[in-house]
Simulated scan of single mutants.
Amino acid sequence: MRLRDATRADARDLAYLINLAGEGLPETLWGQMAEGDATPLEVGAERAGREEGGFSYHHARVCIERGRIVGMIIAYRLPDSYDLEGLDEAPATVQPLLRLEAQVPGSWYINGIATLPAARRKGVGRLLMAQAEASAIGAGCHELSLIVAEENHTACAIYHRLGFREIASLPLVPWPGCPHGGRWLLMTRLLEAR
């Protein structure tokens, strides 16, 4: 297995994987944006191929095994000052996520991490998380941050084992097909410079 920076050509794989990570929320949002006969995944791929925005191939690293993308991570430094102006215009499902992000300005934010089901338990996630830590330290960040649904017990357990701790939470606003209720958890882990 090896990691590499994502390219625009990876946009469709990135859209598929971020939807896995987001447990269907991205697909719901893309479906609301779709025009004409565009499918939600096509909208997601278009967004992943953008040059700007948090969900852009510029912020992604992919894990390759036997010439195929088997996992990805999208991570970047959050702004040092976070502006929530216009928050009410964002979809209700996204508003708690934006409010939580605003509580960790300047952190290295893991927007999404996912592994194809067939590639799980092979160390892909560990490799991607180690990459995120190295990138964060290289960017001068002292903290990793992420948001996870509290009812996603498997992911929460993994993040706890990796040293992440919950620092805040907000109620989750369900979307069609949402597998969880409960709350979104903002988790962080402090980094030591090496």
Rank of each mutant, 00 (worst) to 15 (best):
A157Q: 13
H142R: 15
L97T: 14
A157K: 08
H142E: 14
G106S: 02
R189W: 06
A45Y: 04
D10L: 13
P79Y: 04
I113S: 07
C141L: 01
N152E: 08
S107H: 11
P171Y: 10
P91H: 05
G177R: 08
G22Y: 04
I147V: 15
G138I: 04
H142Q: 14
P171E: 02
P91G: 06
T7H: 10
I64C: 10
R66H: 14
R47C: 06
A118T: 10
I74F: 00
C178Q: 06
N152T: 11
A34G: 08
P79S: 10
L29W: 01
T154R: 14
R126L: 06
L14Y: 05
Y57M: 05
L84I: 07
A168L: 09
V124M: 00
A155P: 08
A155Y: 02
C141W: 05
I158H: 04
L17G: 00
S169I: 00
L14P: 02
R161K: 15
R99C: 03
C63D: 08
G182A: 09
M187G: 01
N152A: 03
M187L: 06
T154W: 00
A60E: 06
S81H: 13
N111L: 13
A134M: 07
A193L: 12
I73K: 04
D5T: 11
E52I: 06
W108A: 01
E65A: 13
R50S: 11
P40G: 04
L144K: 02
D10S: 12
G67A: 09
D37V: 09
G71K: 11
L41H: 10
R2Q: 15
A118N: 05
M129H: 10
I110L: 14
R12E: 15
E65Y: 02
E166P: 11
L185W: 14
W30Q: 11
M72L: 13
A21T: 09
Y82N: 09
A60L: 07
S135Q: 15
S107F: 01
L97R: 05
V70P: 07
A155S: 09
L41A: 14
A136I: 00
D80I: 01
L170C: 01
L185G: 02
A119K: 09
P171V: 02
C156L: 12
E133K: 05
R183L: 05
G112C: 00
A193H: 10
R120E: 13
W175R: 04
K122H: 14
T39K: 12
G71T: 12
A38F: 03
G163R: 10
D80R: 12
M187D: 03
P117M: 11
A90L: 14
Y16A: 15
L128T: 11
L29F: 01
W184T: 02
Y109P: 03
G22S: 08
P176L: 06
V94R: 03
E23T: 13
V70L: 04
G36V: 01
W184Y: 15
R50P: 03
R165C: 12
L146N: 01
T93W: 09
P174I: 11
K122T: 10
T154F: 00
R4D: 10
E42Q: 09
R77P: 12
E85P: 02
V62T: 07
R61N: 08
E51S: 03
